[in-house]
Nucleic acid binder design. Structure first.
Length: 864
DNA sequence: CTTATGAGTCTTTTT
DNA sequence: GACTCATAAG
């Protein structure tokens, strides 16, 4: 109940909490006239802060200051005493966005910001579900299944129902179930409309139904349930819904264009009014000022922020109609458009506008800035992805030398698999980087193993966690023993932990029984240590034990780390380190959340998003997918792999609206850049292990030629990679260093060239102006044909730079040595820094000048 | 019951 | 080319 203390303050107290808060932002000490919260906002922004009414849609183009508007709007509501912090619910897309918003609101309001709910959809729902779980057959300690857990469960179900012969796989089944859940469907609803005559349909219904039952038995929710079950809870328990409908008077939703039907429904439920009857039954009783004339509590005011041009999550159910039809959905809604961009240069915005303008089904909207043109966009086509990555690495070094911090640079790509080539070159070049998302820390096998123990402590009925921990470390408990235990557990209706402690009732061999009993004892001890319910002694459960201590106990007792270290595989050392890292993550959590327990830790871990890993202080280049990049910004941005089949992705080409969504993805990528934007591609790309030819993306042709300064156009790519490619990169003609800032009036020249296209004979492409996309394309097509022939002839490609892992660990280098590098040719070492495997050779190459090289991994040899 | 080997599948994008 | 999975041998 403590959450509600601030809910219905009496009139006198209303003003008191705010008196001490003054001038958090502006410092305009108490002046009545100019509102510091509106200071420096443009008219539409100010309107978005001040507008009141039942519903507000803020159409916020990229970089138009929407976070500022949102935070100021919240602060404005509170500062004007229109709302208490506890009456605010703000939903963001990632935890990082949530904490940023929380910090910024706190910066404006100070302590007065305490008590607001600022979180993601999923976190907010977990909070509600944990509180209300008992009302519908769950326990507060429920487990959250991530997609891997769901798939593990589905795998078992598919096997048991022998559905695999019908083409059901964990992946496709999970995708289908997820899609249905996002539509708020369930097995029964689906069964009602399913075609009974189709055996595949019948089987799917059976799988779906079993999956639902198993989740419930496991006391677990999957990701989609978190939203869907909350909606379900609200709809089936109006009295519970009323608690939240009453409490939240102002609901703000960010990235509204990416909400799916379930999330939309959740918002609808939360903003519903409470009818007089239900309001009457509420505890504590409603006050007069909370209700309208009829005794009903009016619905909360709703503010949504979004940009339909940035809708990129259709694949997981995001429905663009939510934002497009907002005005119809919420009558009386006001719409404010923010079009002035405060992030990027005009050149970058022009490119973005040009690309997105090709989406016919959108509302006209044009971003503009008063910042000036800035530098041109840089284009580069590598021969291979290796070549492309090399360019990225070199350019990053150049930017860094020019004074840009590594942390100001980001590299985007469409698919996670593109990281490999990039990473390789970044490592070699001794550039600090980090990959956001991808195979996340928490998805690593050893981390999941350790986490399974913790999950099982919190939820001893969770079969996925339990089954996982049985096998790690190896202790002789195999599938047979597991199955028998599971049967026993189900028959007795007890937890897995209890079942293990009663292993002697099942009749195992002495060795297996010993192992099971030992493990059961360990879990019991750990459960007691964690302060969980397994204790008879009521004295014991007081303050929760630090999560790190529980984890340490498990790791020590199971000797997981030692056992990894004892193995030969060098990968296992890294795994051991990951486990140690997990302990420090837990320790940090304990410090950050004193009084929180295992459950909070598990929840937090389950809901981390890729972008949450971003740390502004890290001083490293950030690598991420275009999806992860949404909502972020960087002074310098590389978008790599701008090729047909990759961006737009092959998979999207046949989907309806697929290309438009890919185009929005491109748009999102471009608009992340503040000052410098690079678009890179490769003319060949390895997929599935063998090398295919790649075409430049259609999106490149949608950008006016005058905006891109091509260092190497698709047509110029030579089939000879390696050292000589540099000659082609070298500045040509007037050189690019001098007249880079072509005035806004200076575009005719290149557009004339552009228009010439067509005829293959327009040959003289080798001329200085490298920015001719059309003829470049022709040339490129010719190359592609040749390349295909060459490959068909079995000759393969000449000079393909090997990607084999090398190790120069023992190579001794000293200043003055001459070395030969596969890509850069010969050069002289000027200095060595770093220790052991992190030794870096600073080298001046004859052809390309100064480079940093990681000695251990660079393709170098010493020249005598 | 664990481990080694080979075949088969796969790659969009994520909370 | 990498990873998972099934099969067979230790």
């Amino acid at each position: 109940m403590s959450d509600f203390e601030l809910l219905s303050p009496d009139g006198g107290a209303l003003s008191s909490p705010f008196d001490s808060v003054r001038g958090g932002a502006g410092g305009a000490s108490g002046a009545r006239g100019a509102d510091p919260l509106l200071d420096g906002l443009n008219p539409p922004q100010a309107r978005a802060v001040e507008a009141r009414g039942p519903a507000l849609l803020i159409v916020a183009g990229a970089g138009s200051g929407k976070t500022r508007v949102l935070t100021h709007r919240i602060a404005h509501l509170i500062r004007n005493k229109e709302a208490w912090p506890s009456q605010i619910l703000a939903i963001t897309f990632t935890n990082k966005a949530a904490s940023e918003m929380r910090e910024r609101v706190a910066g404006l309001l100070g302590d007065a910001a305490e008590g607001m709910w600022i979180s993601t959809f999923h976190s907010a729902c977990v909070r509600i579900l944990r509180r209300e779980a008992e009302r519908f057959g769950y326990v507060a300690g429920f487990t959250i299944y991530d997609s891997a857990d769901s798939r593990a469960l589905l795998k078992r179900i598919i096997k048991e129902t022998e559905a695999d012969s019908y083409g059901f796989t964990p992946a496709n089944t999970s995708a289908k179930i997820s899609r249905l859940k996002n539509e708020l469907s369930d097995a029964d609803t689906y069964a009602a409309t399913a075609n009974e005559a189709d055996p595949r349909e019948r089987i799917f219904v059976e799988i779906f139904r079993t999956y639902e039952q198993e989740l419930r038995r496991a006391n677990a929710f999957d990701f989609d349930d978190l939203i869907g079950q909350t909606v379900h809870l609200f709809r089936s328990h109006p009295d519970v819904a009323a608690i939240y409908q009453r409490r939240f008077r102002h609901i703000l939703v960010d990235e509204y264009q990416d909400t799916n039907h379930a999330q939309y429904s959740l918002i609808r439920e939360l903003t519903r009014s409470v009818d007089p009857d239900t309001a009457d039954r509420l505890v504590p009783p409603v006050r007069e000022r909370e209700v309208d004339g009829t005794g009903a509590i009016p619905g909360a005011s709703l503010t949504v922020v979004g940009d339909s041009d940035q809708s990129i999550y259709a694949f997981r159910g995001a429905d663009i109609r939510n934002i497009v039809e907002f005005e119809r959905d919420f009558p009386g809604a006001e719409v404010v458009k923010l079009e002035q961009n405060y992030r990027s240069t005009q050149n970058i915005l022009s490119a973005a506008n040009a690309v997105i303008g090709n989406n016919f089904d959108r509302q006209e909207k044009n971003l503009f800035t008063t910042e000036g043109d800035g530098e041109k966009i840089t284009g580069f086509t590598g021969y291979s992805q290796h070549d492309e990555a090399r360019f990225v690495a070199e350019e990053i070094e150049d930017l860094h030398r020019a004074g840009l911090a590594y942390g100001d640079i980001a590299v985007f790509y469409r698919t996670n698999s593109q990281t490999r080539a990039l990473e390789e070159l970044l490592i070699r070049s001794a550039i600090p980087y980090r990959v956001l998302g991808g195979t996340k820390f928490y998805e690593r096998a050893e981390i999941k193993d350790a986490m399974a123990y913790l999950t099982s402590l919190a939820n001893p009925y969770d079969p996925i966690a339990w089954s996982r921990l049985l096998g790690v470390p190896k202790r002789g408990i195999g599938p047979m023993a597991e199955a028998q235990l599971a049967v026993f557990q189900e028959a007795q209706g007890i937890s897995f932990h209890e079942a293990m402690l009663r292993a002697d009732e099942i009749g195992f061999g002495p060795k297996v029984r010993g192992a099971i009993l030992g493990l059961g004892e360990l879990l019991r001890a750990a459960r007691m240590a964690a302060g969980g319910g397994g204790t008879e002694d009521p004295e014991v459960e007081k303050k929760p034990t630090p999560v790190a201590d529980v984890l340490k106990l498990i790791l020590d007792e199971t000797e997981m780390i030692e056992k990894l270290r004892a193995k030969r595989d060098p990968q296992d050392e890294a795994r051991a380190e990951n486990l140690e890292e997990l302990v420090s993550v837990a320790r940090e959590f304990d410090v950050r959340n004193p009084g929180a327990g295992l459950l909070e830790f598990l929840t937090e871990v389950s809901l981390v998003a890729a972008a949450d890993e971003l740390d502004d202080q890290s001083g490293t280049v950030s690598l991420m997918t275009l999806h992860t990049a949404k909502g972020l910004e960087f002074p310098a941005v590389f978008i790599t792999g701008v090729e047909e089949g990759l961006l737009p992705h092959q998979m999207s080409v046949d989907e309806i609206g697929g290309i438009n969504e890919e185009r929005r993805l491109m748009y999102v990528g471009i608009t992340r850049a503040r000052k410098r934007l690079y678009l890179t591609l490769a003319s060949t790309r390895a997929t599935y292990g063998d090398i295919g030819v790649a075409m430049p993306s259609r999106f490149l042709q949608e950008i006016p030629d005058s905006l891109i300064d091509w260092r190497q156009t698709p047509g110029e790519v030579t089939s000879r990679g390696g050292t000589e490619s540099r000659a082609l990169n070298a500045p040509r003609g007037e050189g690019r260093s001098g007249s880079r800032s072509s005035r806004s009036s200076g575009r005719p020249e290149s557009s004339v060239v552009f228009g010439r296209g067509g005829g293959s004979g327009a040959a003289a492409v080798a001329e200085p102006a490298s920015g001719n996309m059309q003829s470049a394309l022709d040339k490129w097509r010719e190359r592609k044909r040749l390349a295909k022939e060459a490959q068909a002839a079995g000759g393969g490609f000449p000079n393909l730079v090997g990607t084999s892992i090398r190790d120069n660990g023992d190579l001794e280098l000293a200043p003055g040595d001459r070395i030969r590098h596969e890509d850069y040719g010969e050069g002289r070492v000027t200095g060595i820094t770093g220790e052991g495997s992190k030794r870096v050779a600073h080298t001046v190459f004859d052809s390309v000048g100064e480079r940093k090289l990681l000695v251990k991994l660079s393709p170098i040899t010493k020249v005598e």
